[in-house]
Design a protein around this nucleic acid. Structure first.
Lengths: 259, 259
DNA sequence: ATCAAAATCAATCTAAATCGATCAAAATGA
DNA sequence: TCATTTTGATCGATTTAGATTGATTTTGAT
């Protein structure tokens, strides 16, 4: 086996693959092989792992990124474990929506599943800054209030100061929020400061804040800080969440629902 | 089997097909084949899959897009004379959009054609309260500012007091407005008072108001009054507009462009 | 309306690319 | 050193794409 001077460590290589795939949208195995100077077998093994992690979707000849953009496939991908988890969380969250309540729906795939469930309801009011959520509800369903603002294409959400203009004028019973990461020490965080700002503002205008996040987001910290745990009333996650993590949160008075 | 240097991955190719079909409204198999450099058999197989996914509808000789629900009614209908007229008007209106300008796009099918044209531009800012326009521009294109508000399902626009909260904070160089009816005596009118209110507000915040309306709307009066003619700077319509109608408007200082 | 020619389609088959499983070689860490 | 993990190579199995052929649909002329 011939190795180059600086053989990348496995996780490092996988991260490079993930980024390459994300940047291209889709990438073929052969291109990755040439790029990383390893055998196709290695690439395949890496892709297999990345698929389990929900980062990419494997297709014949290569892989499609599941991060950002083209992930219209979140719905299609029924086999994906991560996707199933999100769906379960969304269903549980939906069960919390009471009669004639008003709710806020954040961007992200978990809340998108919720939007789909809310299609059946006509007694509630849904406030959202997620373009996809609005699309789900644009034919029929509840009353829909959309926060305006500037379109952030990567997340398909509306952000920025103009969103605030609308948000300042409303209150909701329950805010269902997604997140990119949450940890005990630093609270909740996401990638974009503008989005973080919108989330923070919503949290302030909601009677109850419900965080939807599968365990893969645990102990991860993103660039933009959203809020501390004292803003959160309920966390809905899954059983892979570390026990002491759950314990600590409950001690702080946060209801934790594990699915 | 002969392969070229960079054969597109199957999902990538299908996505390109989906987009090509969406952009054209309807596309023939043969055109897709030439575009993508694959055999017709492959195109057919792809269309079969896209049809299962509900993205396109297959017809003899090609496929029709099922996305952007408007295709069904408006884009589809290439033979429809009214539709052609609207497209011409939209193209003329688009030619008025200068470099780095900010424009407002109203709801309605004519402005939707404009949205489609604006997809290519990245130097402008588009403000709109039309959900469909945002959908057109959600993948790529100019900066998009969406007015928030309550979703009015029938027109797929955002209306109500919350829209105002955003509109009050912005100004545009040009506002492109559709209408349900316009007549010399009563000015411009539309069906819904909420929408009329939004239009009025936009007109006040635009340096130039450009009315897009084919001649079928002439001398029609709808329920909700939008504004008088003195608000309008340019009218783009077609040659079927009565001559004295044009004359009177020009006398009042309104530029009239007939196509 | 009817028919025939042309175009398009669906089904089948073949070749090529890709994949998954397995095993051997290499690297890693105790 | 030896055990463990990681990587690379091989080979039969699977998937995909292109070509062919007969069936179906559309078109245009009567």
């Amino acid at each position: 086996m011939i190795q180059e001077a600086h053989p990348a460590l496995a996780p490092e290589r996988r991260d490079r693959i993930r980024i390459l795939v994300r940047e291209e949208g889709v990438t073929r195995v052969e291109d990755l092989r040439k790029n990383l100077n390893v055998s196709v077998a290695t690439i395949r093994r890496d892709l297999e792992i990345l698929e389990e992690e929900g980062k990419v979707k494997r297709v014949h000849g290569g892989a499609v990124s599941m991060e950002s953009r083209l992930e219209e496939s979140v719905f299609d991908d029924k086999t994906n474990q991560a996707s199933k988890q999100k769906k379960r969380i969304a269903e549980d969250a939906y069960s919390l929506v009471g009669h004639e309540e008003s709710v806020f729906l954040d961007g992200g795939s978990t809340t998108l599943f919720m939007a789909r469930l809310l299609q059946q309801r006509t007694d509630v009011t849904v406030v959202t800054n997620s373009l996809r959520a609005v699309q789900e509800l644009s034919d029929s369903g509840p009353r829909v209030i959309f926060t305006g603002g500037e379109l952030r294409r990567i997340s398909q959400t509306m952000v920025g100061p103009l969103s605030s203009a609308v948000l300042e004028q409303i209150r909701v019973d329950k805010a269902f929020m997604g997140t990119m990461g949450f940890c005990l020490k630093n609270g909740i965080s996401t990638t974009d400061p503008n989005e973080a700002y919108v989330k923070r503002q919503i949290a302030e205008h909601a009677s109850q804040v419900i965080l939807l996040a599968d365990s893969s987001k645990a102990e991860k910290v993103s660039f933009a800080r959203v809020s501390d745990w004292d803003q959160v009333d309920i966390l809905i996650s899954d059983h892979d969440l570390p026990k002491d993590f759950v314990k600590t949160l409950r001690k702080r008075g946060i209801k934790v629902r594990l699915l």
